[in-house]
Write a protein that binds this DNA or RNA. Sequence first.
RNA 1: GCGGACAUGGUGGAAUUGGCAGACACGCUGGUCUUAGGAGCCAGUGCGCAAGCAUCCGGGUUCGAAUCCCGGUGUCCGCACCA
Length: 796
Amino acid sequence: MERYDPKAIEPKWQKTWLENGCFRAGDESGKERFYALIEFPYPSGVGLHIGHPRPYTGMDVLARARRMQGYNVLFPIGWDAFGLPAENYAIKNNIHPAEVVRHNVEHFRGQIRRLGYSFDDAREVNTTDPDYYKWTQWIFLKMVEHGLAYKADVPVNWCPSCKCVLANEEVVGGLCERCEAPAEHRDKSQWMLKITQYAQRLLDDLDLCEFPARVAAQQRNWIGRSEGAEILFAIAGTDESLRVYTTRPDTLFGATYMVISPEHPLIGRLESRIQNLAEVDGYRKAAARKSDFERTELVKDKTGVRLDGITAVNPATGNDIPIYVSDYVLMSYGTGAIMAVPGHDTRDWEFARAFGLPIVEVVAGGDISKEAFTDTETGTMVNSGFLNGMEVAEAKKTIAKWLQGKGLGEPKVRYKLRDWVFARQRYWGEPIPIIHCPQCGMVPLPEDQLPLKLPEVQNYKPTDTGESPLAAIGEWVNTTCPQCGGAARRETDTMPQWAGSSWYFLRYADPHNQNELASKEALRRWMPVDWYNGGMEHTTLHLLYSRFWHKFLYDIGVAEQPEPYIKRTSHGFILGSDGTKISKSKNNGMDPDVIMREYGADTLRLTILFIGDFEKGCQWSEKAIKGCRRFLERVWAVKPGASAVDEVKLHQTVKKVTEDIEGLKFNTAIAAMMSLLSVMEKGCSQFDMNVFLRLLSPFAPHISEEMWARQGEKGLCCEAAWPQYDPAKTVEDTVELAVQVNGKLRGTVTVARGCENDTAAAAALGTERVKAIAEGREPVKVIVVPDKLVNLIFKG
RNA sequence: GCGGACAUGGUGGAAUUGGCAGACACGCUGGUCUUAGGAGCCAGUGCGCAAGCAUCCGGGUUCGAAUCCCGGUGUCCGCACCA
């Protein structure tokens, strides 16, 4: 018999699928649509890595199954090709980034084809294609028009290794998300996107999204909504005041001092009154030198300096209270100043202890000599004038009214989310289409001049000065103002890599449109994305950013729905065979190409899905490959004959595989097929085989196609109709009941399905084992779960 | 500190969501075929000689708990001096 040889059959079918356009989404189709989306890859030089095949294979199974179920499926792929790695590789090897991308994309395309993925080859998008980034720039200009994109002098995170600024979301634990260099502080004039304007909607509309709990929770956490009040504290003897934000206005009577951040502008304004200015300046300079990493991770002991010569007035008590500068207060959150209530805030308590400041109890219920009492559920107000005796919740309302009445404060909602730093000082990104004119100021490039293409240059190395390499390209930078026609300069920063990916799912609907980012009809046909699978690492980056962009596009009438994705799932990470992150140096991982060469794409696809629950993390193991390859070889060897498999088994398997695909339970779907196969090996009909191949087809499409053809079936297996099951035929006529005595399993008994409880109980009582235990006694209680079990309770 | 997830044989992992724990696979053991096998096929495989005991530990609810509740331990992930 001919051996199973994937090398001989896989390329053949990949070619057939491509030539027949099997996976092209139909714009004219009358079928119900299904839009399945994976996160498009960054085409790096090393090709597909371990992270890609798992989500792609999983979603490919879903897409293939849905096609067979009669849906018009859009399952596209593209290339998120701007960004630092291509640029760095280009610099190192002296090749233009565009050339690097072209080469890498070709490599990726080949690998993806060899894996048998059913991506629509006619809808590829590439973020670095001017026909694509024209629309990225267009969206940016619309944001400028609507006041959502603005340039501001703000303290930003600077990565000294990547030599560009980082968004808040790109700093992880004080380190650059990409290269893990400690981020530094720089003050720079920056393009920003006002994502904060959408904070509440991004939060509220999570209810419209079918996100996994962990994804929704993480976004909520990142948006970080809190309710409190802003309160004004007068500076004694001046017209100045200090505005603070607090979530505990109820504890105002306990505010015994104030703290401002080292960057707070009050210090500059009251310089002349500060008696220890040298000391204060010294502290500020030391704080400025620290990176975020040092400020938050390493230094937990409270430090600070009192501003001698100025005091604030507690508006509730009328007392003069000292003001400190300390780096535990951040300029980037709230107002950069706090009222310190050491009795009821852990950080303030620590600071007060270190500096010998009074700690006053205003909420009874704890022991503030030992630690701050921060509970808001159980406390009663004390030492708080007109608030005394109230519970915390009531005190909050009362003090808010009182403050508003006196014009000293107002309720305020705050978010941790900050505006998105949207400029990078690098070459390989979308140019920001803005012109700086000495007469007219910042002028948006007119839409008819889009795309603003990147210039061809010799040198695109980043600089240490914080200037983009584009700044050195005179003939590109120097231009004329679209408004006054005078000499002007182009913006030289480029957009971050997250720009192109913030709307790419819309472009798939209509990828070749020259007049719009996508036509209304196409967007109506395909959006929103039905099912989007992607990595957890993008939860507070791409996933949040793209929701924001889509909401904006919805507001200006481009998008049709408030949310871009109906359902989001997230695959678990594959760890190395040693349980740690896969890396080349540790040699604990897998190279898709190597495995494909040795075992074939179908085996790799099965292995990746069989290894564990798709949505949970799992460990890679060479051992798993063998079992899957063995399975396919056994499939190959089955020869249909006269006898047929048990109808119930067949229908059960169809049901199980159908349902498991919907739930992304690919591992148990494969197990069910393995189980059916072992029955088929004992004898099966041509029809059994036909059903089996259709079930297997989304998982192992090549072998299914080959055997389908060899069986003489008509058409392509991947275009055959999905097998149907008859629910009535998924169950046997008889059932085996578990027989328990006093809750313990004592045997089984076979009865007719759906039989009366009395009949089941009688059958259970009639078993030898039960008779022996009963010794003639009658059970005091009988519990029957129909078709499941009988539990007999005996006394004693 | 806040938020999320998780803990099942030698291993990866199943368990219709409160109803026969360990599906499926790896590994292992024995057999068989073979000049040979790190190939194939067949059988066995949670622990225990047994009665029994078993889903991280301790309580609880229930006729019945891997599953629900309370307490504890441990692991992973996200955020974090966020006022």
